[in-house]
Design a protein around this nucleic acid. Sequence first.
DNA 1: GCCATGATATAACAGTGTTATGATCTGTCA
DNA 2: TGACAGATCATAACACTGTTATATCATGGC
Lengths: 209, 209
Amino acid sequence: MTVPEEMATTRSGPTKARILAAASQLLLEQGTTSLSVRAIAQQAGVSTMGIYSHFDGKQGVFDALYREGFERLARALERALKIPDPREAARLGTQLYLELAQDYESHYRLMFGERAGRFEPSETARADALRAFELLVQLMAKLMPVRNSGATHLCHAVAFWAQLHGYVSLQQQMLPHLPAQQDWDKQVLRTMDDMIERLAQGDVPGAQR
Amino acid sequence: MTVPEEMATTRSGPTKARILAAASQLLLEQGTTSLSVRAIAQQAGVSTMGIYSHFDGKQGVFDALYREGFERLARALERALKIPDPREAARLGTQLYLELAQDYESHYRLMFGERAGRFEPSETARADALRAFELLVQLMAKLMPVRNSGATHLCHAVAFWAQLHGYVSLQQQMLPHLPAQQDWDKQVLRTMDDMIERLAQGDVPGAQR
DNA sequence: GCCATGATATAACAGTGTTATGATCTGTCA
DNA sequence: TGACAGATCATAACACTGTTATATCATGGC
């Protein structure tokens, strides 16, 4: 029905980008709960209806922000994959992941759970998420002995992701309520380092039968 | 629309419990997004104002559900702590944690992030959460060599929790979008088993400097 | 020139949490 | 028993939310 390429030259292109930028900024500053259609429209200098002309309502904007977050994550993992040394690559990937989760906390929460309102990512958005995950699998595969199967890579990528995401999630939501945790970031990096070392040495006892 | 006889004896006591039960049921069936004040009131056979008489509005109801979830978790961990063998205790704790996350998914999501609307747990609610966490620390302390410090116990309890919560969180939110993961539960239990074994053997390389 | 199409603005609708206001009922005390 | 105090009730209103409808306006193509 709509052909974005042709409209991009006229005027809807920039305004669409401006709406997205406004939404992203509001999301960064005030979180998902304060992100209303009217607020986005006002911030972008557009009528409320503009959100429905250029996007598919709030769903569409959330979808774009969701994709934006996963594209950022994919770029970070690609950057890590360029490092030749597998352990260094995995470490950089971990570090960039943590930085992204910290700098774009609201985006991160939109990506992982917290489906604000009734938001569900679209098919294409989920494809972006999947692509980021595949890059993580590559990062893990690089780390492990070559004779391991793809299924093994996938298992350990999920375990690695779960550990990392678990830390981020707990930090974002429970950390202020927990007994004083000094050097949280250091502990996370140390734990992930240990995990990387174990994977590199193939020391995963009952991992694959 | 008069109130029936049976509940007229002592008004505020049972009705408060009935509201909470109705909210909990609606949360289980329809999730946080469909949990409106009017829906709770209707389900409980109470006027909308009843939510504000017996609770402090929606915040209060969410707070009660939050506490309910963490009390359930604490009971599960207490049950696990009764097992004499440390490894078996940790394994049972893991299993009960996973069951709770599955059977009360919406409660779990309310407890960990997804602060629906502008919900923030109260002081007492956070105390309940902290108590559940302390039981987890006990479960970990039981597992580890006695000469380790309390700080070490805490670090590993957090790492354990992060791994477990990470799995649950990914399962709840990303699993349907990931490439086919057969035997997810089995993988989780295996990973946690490995972690338990490492902790029991004191095999935590760079964990404490 | 004109018309058609898309973006705009305004308003309205249904829903949300919350507050205000009397009316009704309960328990207590004189 | 009778009456007052306080809690609980129903109803309505307010300020929001996302969304839809409608009418005005500007622009591009013939």
